[in-house]
Design a binder for these strands. Structure first.
Lengths: 352, 352
DNA sequence: CAAAGCTGGTAATGCGTATTACTATCTCCG
DNA sequence: CGGAGATAGTAATACGCATTACCAGCTTTG
């Protein structure tokens, strides 16, 4: 239980001590440090230099807590992940995001406060809890496959600056997301152009925005092709065998699968069933790859620009925090183009 | 430039407002919140409950900056990485450490403050800089392949609680490291027991403690075997061809290589030279794997317990911060046993 | 030469919390 | 019934910094 002070015995360097050493007042030190030289307050170069010289001779650094308390932003961006960020199950989801976030934060000179203390409730972290340290940060980034709308609304209500990563259809929530609809539509069109006419879509039961987006992109695109036939079904977790039989009965030439794990599983079942992929059946993956090792197969799939997603979120947040900037409403809710990994599992159907 | 306050317009919830609503004083609210009920100060259950009820009806959370300023530890652990943590070049070095750190911090209810704002100087971050936010954290973890001894001394001098990950031979620096010497010795002994008698060691020029440890473990072990012959040479970056010729002239049956990249490169050159690995030459890797993809070969190698390293560092730091705990000097400088990945490149020599 | 302006600062205050010292009221006991 | 103790709080202060209001001494101007 870390509760001891950082500097138990030592006399800490403060502006007051600097002031004594330089023969000025604490206020003067503060003014020098903050480069204030309005018409209101004048500090001659000689005095300024004297103060700076004293500081240079010490290890003084302004106490961030005090700065914060005095009402100054302190360049700390909160990072909240709805699941632990590093365990291997999540690592490939969060790591690229964090890469972008870190790089951009470094450029801006911001530190990152990772809210690892959030209590876990039914395998999701809860943002609001006693002694949450949200208030220490100037603003925050929210990462996670799914987020609690109530918490989002509460953040909006308290006017706390934050940016969600991933599209969130909650009023007033700024986000940077991925245009899965268009990406999925592009893949569907690519399949159509290759000659596919019978499409299956194995989707998740999740109600997440991104899943709905993908399904929308899929259906909207195929709706423009009257000769395309579509089968849709939800993937129940666990045994995909029954679902596979339904799909086989429909006899699609291409199947779109939301979950990479399901795709791998489905491909295995199909092979056991004498269906060779991609010769007899093309497979397209739409969802997030949780563990790349699970994908021995180089599936044709969506490839969201995750690193950029993180970076753009930081940029947006920093703009929201900049008093001289006022992002337009449209800029507060952005979708980035989704990349496509060509892969090897989408080919022209044999019947074409 | 994030400088705007977090709560521009809204009226922030404070203890004072809670106090007004509950009809008590701010002090009482604080006392209730901190569960103080000494013989000195008594708060009857009725009042306590009234205050708690009011708080439950609001979104009050204590301002961490104020807590900090008031001299209370705030359960924030600083994390400083000497290189950006996430870019792919470093990712496999830092990620396991961060995994352990995050998991342990979560257990302790601590948040992590990642010092991404540190300015980069000749490709290393500098810990001390104007407005560094070190002081916001109760203590800090230092990660990196190499660290600046001057900065470490300064941290020690200012009595700031911190733990370095990796052995650091600087007076007063607490660390959790890996016992590379013993690990390397074990591998050397394993090779000897397999029948190897001619050993080559291709080491780095680095002066880092861990590199020296490995070399020491290697030499100490082989010194106990009078019939072992040893060749040693530094790996200059870039072209390994000349070094390979030296090694070949020595005709070892096993070569220990500190850098995995060098091992991969050396193996390639050796194969081109008609030397089959491991049949004609066993290869053992001692160093950190920066990018696993670079290792198509499943080298026999040291496998430091990185996740545990991170976790143990957090545990040690939290003990240092616990007023009721006083880790013994020996506990402040620990080495964890180094694991060994069996791999496929250490086999008995043909001549044996 | 008095008033006005300028120069170079400083004193005072607030931020939100924790904690200590203290006070006012009530109760019990002799 | 008067004093000792217990009870239930509160006022005051510190933490380190930023900022505003102000002031003293000097210079210029009318």
């Amino acid at each position: 239980m870390p509760t001891r002070m950082a500097n138990p015995g030592k006399t800490k360097m403060t502006q007051r001590r600097i002031a004594e050493l330089a023969g000025v007042s604490q206020a003067t030190v503060s003014l020098v440090l903050n480069g204030k030289a309005d018409a209101e307050v004048r500090i001659p170069a000689s005095t300024r230099q004297r103060v700076l010289d004293v500081i240079a001779g010490t290890s003084y650094v302004a106490d961030p807590a005090a700065r914060r308390l005095a009402g100054v932003g302190n360049k700390i961006l909160g990072v909240f992940t709805y699941e632990p960020a590093f365990p291997s199950a999540s690592i490939d989801f969060y790591t690229p995001l964090l890469t972008g976030i870190e790089a951009e934060a470094e450029k801006l000179g911001c530190d990152l406060l990772v809210f690892t203390s959030a209590p876990v409730e039914n395998s999701r972290r809860r943002l609001f809890h006693e002694n949450n340290r949200l208030g220490l940060a100037d603003g925050a980034l929210l990462l996670g496959r799914e987020m609690d709308p109530v918490e989002l609304q509460r953040l909006v209500a308290m006017d706390f600056p934050f940016v969600a990563i991933g599209r969130r259809d909650v009023d007033g929530v700024p986000y940077v997301g991925v245009d899965y609809a268009t990406g999925t539509a592009l893949l569907a069109r690519r399949a159509y152009d290759l000659g596919h006419r019978r499409f299956a879509l194995l989707h998740l039961d999740s109600t997440g925005e991104s899943g709905l987006d993908r399904q929308r992109g899929f259906h909207d695109e195929l709706a423009t092709h009257p000769d395309a036939r579509v089968w849709t079904g939800p993937a129940t977790s666990g045994n995909l065998a029954p679902i596979w039989r339904s799909i086989r009965d429909f006899a699609p030439t291409v199947v779109f699968v939301e979950s990479p794990e399901h795709a791998a599983e489905l491909a295995r079942i199909a092979r056991d069933d004498g269906v060779e992929i991609p010769r007899d059946l093309s497979v397209v993956v739409l969802g997030e790859v949780a563990v790349p090792d699970a994908l021995a197969t180089d599936f044709t799939r969506l490839s969201p620009p995750r690193v950029r997603l993180g970076a753009e979120a930081v940029i947006l947040l920093s703009r929201m925090l900049d008093p001289d900037d006022e992002p337009a409403p449209a800029e507060l809710r952005r979708l980035l183009d989704c990349g496509i990994a060509d892969g090897a599992t989408l080919v022209a159907p044999v019947t074409a």
